[in-house]
Amino acid sequence: MSHEHPHHHDHGHEHDASGEPVSGARRRFCQVCIGSATAITVGTVVYPIVAFLKLPLRLGDAKPVEIPLDRLSPGQAYYADFQGQQVIVVMTEAGPRVFDAACTHLGCNVVWDTAHSNFHCPCHGAVFSGEGKVVSGPVSSPLREIPFEIKNGVLVIA
């Protein structure tokens, strides 16, 4: 059984609209252009879909934060990203402490005030002591403390 395929006949001497013979090189150039444009278009559609189907990031998958103790100087505070939120590491006289940087009022990130050795919140002026306790402002609970370990001189939050 066979069907007529007019475009499957041999294109021995093809001519374009103006009667010029169509050169193979020009045809190939067009094919490559159209082919790559199609490939790029299909790729930009397929890639996000495949990526979407991957397993999503869960909080538990986050990498632990590791900070060598010798990089922490007394009276200074450092921000780090832990499980998608900011934590603040302070080196107090009694050793390092780690807090969730989110203010317990409405969740702005608190700022370490080196001069007064306390945290203050830029949003509504809450002040927390270096131990995270409430000093003043529209808050009633202390900063959330984050547990950590010290392994071979490295502070590890996991």
Partner: peptide, 13 residues
Amino acid sequence: TFIKSNVTMGWLV
């Protein structure tokens, strides 16, 4: 929020 921040390309979709 989970779609937008945890799913890869979720924000885009």
